Structure formats: C-alpha cells, structure tokens
Computed example of a mutant assay.
Amino acid sequence: MQNNTVWGSGGVLVLIVCVLLCIALAVLGTRLYGLKKDAEQERSKCEQILLAFSDAILIINPQGRVEMLNSLAEKLTGWTRQEAVGRAYGEIYNTRGADSDLIAEALEGRSRSRSQVFLMSKGGQEFAISDRVSPLLHDYGQLLGVICTFKAMTRRQTQQARLAQLTFRDSLTGLYNRAFFEQELPRLDQPARWPLSVLVGDLNGLKLTNDVFGHSVGDELLIAVSHAFLEVCRPEDRVFRWGGDEFIVLLPKTGQDEANAIRQRLQGALEGRAVGPITVNLPLGCSTKEHAGQDIRAVWQQAEEEMYWLKTVEHTRFQKETLHGIVKELHGRSVAEKEHAERVSSLAEELGRYLGLANHELRKLRLCGLLHDIGKVRIPEEILNKPGRLSAEEYKKVI
C-alpha cells in the first residue's frame, strides 16, 4: 500500500509538470504567433511606405538579388515587381556604362551617391538619373541588404548631363578623353586607391590603314580596340583614348600581378580581331604605384617605355604581316592584278640592274614594284573591274 501511494504521488507530480509545460508551450506559441503577425504587419507597413515613396526605390538582398522595387522603379527600369524579384541587380539596374558599381560597393558596406548617371531600361530606353546607394545594417553591423534610391532628371538636366558626358568622352570610341585623364589621375592617385596600376598602349598600323584604306577603316580599327577594353576592364577602371592611336588604362587597387593578368586578358580579347586584312595589334606596357614614394607620372612613363620597347620588337613582324595581308587581299580579287604587280616588280628590278644598283636596293625596288598599286585595295571590286566609264559617284570613291 505504501508503494502504491508513492507511485500515485509521483504520477500526480508528472501530470502537473506536463500540464504546466503544455500551458507554457501554448502561451509561447501564442506569443510567437503574435510576434510573427507583428513582424508581418511591420514589413507590410514598411513596404507600403517604400511603395508610396516619391523616389524610385530598389531593395537588394545580401546575395545581390532584387528583393523589392516600388512603382517608380518599375516605370524607370521597365521591369515589373513580379519579373524583377529574385533576379541579379545588374539585370534590373543597368548602369553598365557608369564609372563604378555603387551597389557592389554598398554590399561591401560603403554608401555612395551620384549626381548623374544613365540608366538603361528593359526596353532599351536611356534615362539620366541621380542615385544614392546605402547598405542596410543590423544593430550588430550585419549586412541585411542594400537600398538604392534614384530619380529621373528633368529634360534640361538630361541635356546638361549629355553635354558634360561629351566634354569628357572621345566622340569616336566613347572612351574617356585626355581632358578627363588630367582630371581623374590626381583623384585616383590617393592612398585609398593604391596600388594604382597604369597600362599604356599604342595601336600599330593606324597610319598605314588610314593611308591605304581611308580614315573610315582606321576608325573601325580604333572602335575594335575600344570594344576590347570595355569587355575586359572592370567598372572601377578608367579607360582613355589619349591621342590618335594611344590608349591609357588606370587600374585602382590593382597590384602588379593583377595588372599583368588584366593585360593578358586584353591581349587575348584583341587576338584575332581584324578590320579587313588589317589585324589589331596593340603593344601594352604596364607599371604600378605601390606607395607614396613613387611619382605617378614616373610610373606612367615606365609603362610607356615598356610599351615602346614591345612596339619596336614587334614592329618589323607586324609590318610584314600587314603588307602581306593587304597584297593577298588585292591579288585575291583578280589574277590580272597579281600578274600586273609581278610584271612591274620584274621590270623595276631590270631597270635597277641597268642602273647598277646594289642588291639591297634591288630588293627594295622589287618590293616597290609589287606594292605600287596597293591603294587599289580600298576601291570596291565592282568599280575596280568595271569595263566602261565610271560614274561621277564612282569616280569620287576612286580618288
């Protein structure tokens, strides 16, 4: 009987504990449900505030994907909220032509703003906007996401922005020009942006291309180079067309090894590019400023000297390959042209021998005879082989 009493007391005790636990769990569940509802209401309230905000707003999560955008952001980007949520921010907020990626910087904890930048919408329309991008941080400093606020500029502001852009852009290639280089170099030559690397390039064959094919083909060659730079270089890099055939790239926060890797990628992007028979050849020199004891203009000069050394080494080979390509292009159009060039070359050599010229002079004379009609390569084949008289328009193309 005594054992039954003990077990009976224990059973009652267990029952009481279970009841208390159930009550505690029920209270906790109710409390958690209430907190969840409160959180949902707060989130809904915040979203409604953001949606009603007078500026366009984009919210990016820590993984770089769009979490929310309001109606003004939908209008400017061309993306609906349903389409945009979950996509990488670069698809929605397309400012690839900009100097820097502010959202990427905000994901690293930095706030930035711009007074003007151009936004490309989903439909291809371009808007001049001003924007501000800031990280969203937890009380403990943990990154919760990024908020990007932006607004379209007025028509007058847009026109002023385009004029300002033209002031610092090369009209042919769209790269930055020499005037902007002089302004940007001291801005980037600061400890926060060291190591600062410099790439200097000089396009081979531009003068020959202009002389033989005309300046329009030379322009195509320059544009091909600019496209390679824009494909390889990062948003924070600055690419300049310094002069007629010269290019400079400033690479902030980039050491020598990384700069050399970028140079190799550029050479790889340029390899195989050609405009007609002219291949793109751009020797690139590279140098890096690591500390305050180095003068950035001396570093620039070192990169330039390396480039000229490479240009000298490659010059003869490139010139031979280019001339061979031009001759092949011309002679490939007509067997008669090839036979004519070879006949003139032979006659020129005979004349040289008659005049008693030395062997090295005879070689030059043979080459001159072979290339004497090289300018014909820029004339359209249908005009070059036309049997009758040329029209006035055709004659303009010939001269």
Rank of each mutant, 00 (worst) to 15 (best):
H291R: 15
Y140L: 06
E305K: 13
R112G: 01
G29H: 10
L230R: 13
Q165K: 15
D211H: 12
G255Y: 06
L367C: 06
F53K: 04
V377W: 03
S134H: 03
L143T: 10
P380F: 10
S71T: 15
A161K: 03
W79N: 02
R193V: 00
Y354W: 05
Q82K: 14
S71Y: 05
Y176R: 10
Q267S: 13
R234C: 06
R366M: 06
R389F: 08
G34W: 05
L72S: 14
V239L: 11
E108C: 10
S334W: 01
E105D: 06
A261W: 12
Q294Y: 00
K253W: 03
D237F: 05
I262N: 03
W300I: 00
R178N: 06
E394V: 00
E108F: 00
F127Q: 03
K386H: 12
L163Q: 14
V66T: 11
N281S: 12
S197G: 03
E258C: 13
R297E: 14
W242T: 08
L69M: 13
C18N: 06
I379M: 09
S216Q: 12
L384N: 10
A228R: 04
I262G: 02
R193H: 05
G332A: 05
A88Q: 13
D101L: 12
W79E: 04
R263Y: 01
P195E: 02
L28A: 08
K75L: 12
T316P: 00
L107I: 07
R238S: 11
E304I: 13
I59V: 14
C368L: 10
E361I: 02
L351D: 08
I399Q: 13
T77F: 04
E184C: 13
G356W: 09
H340N: 06
V344Y: 04
E361G: 01
I223D: 02
F213D: 01
F318Q: 13
V27F: 12
